[in-house]
């Protein structure tokens, strides 16, 4: 049986998910994701017509609170567990790198 998901699709999805996969992983995931989606063929084939989708098991309502000042997490404690910080902010490498 031909695989439902190709190597190219796996490479594309990995880029979206910010994962760098080895050649072996690309083959493995193409095969395993195809298997899992084959199992999901039962719902893919289902005629669900105009049934409303449910994204949450309970009815969701917007939750408001009074607009009052209250303490937040301690800034030094939060920055203290960050990989890198500078001047009270999270520090990252250049965002706009060289064209590549």
């Amino acid at each position: 049986m031909s695989e439902r998901i190709t190597r190219d699709e796996v490479i594309h999805v990995a880029r979206l998910a910010r994962l760098d996969l080895s050649d072996a992983e690309i083959d493995e995931f193409a095969h395993q994701m195809s298997d899992i989606l084959d199992h999901a063929a039962d719902i893919e084939a289902l005629d669900v017509g105009d049934i409303e989708p449910t994204s949450h098991p309970l009815p969701m309502v917007n939750v408001f609170r009074a607009d009052e000042r209250r303490p937040s997490l301690d800034r030094d404690e939060v920055l203290g567990v960050a990989p890198a910080e500078q001047d009270g902010q999270f520090r990252v490498p250049p965002i706009l790198g060289e064209e590549r």
Binding site: A82, P83, L96
Partner: peptide, 22 residues
């Protein structure tokens, strides 16, 4: 790799994100 947990260093933030998650 920005606010907590592991960071694998790389020249740009995009590459750092991917290297860290990988």
């Amino acid at each position: 790799g920005v606010r907590y947990g592991l960071r694998v260093d790389a020249p740009t933030t995009g590459e750092m994100n991917t290297a860290t998650r990988t």
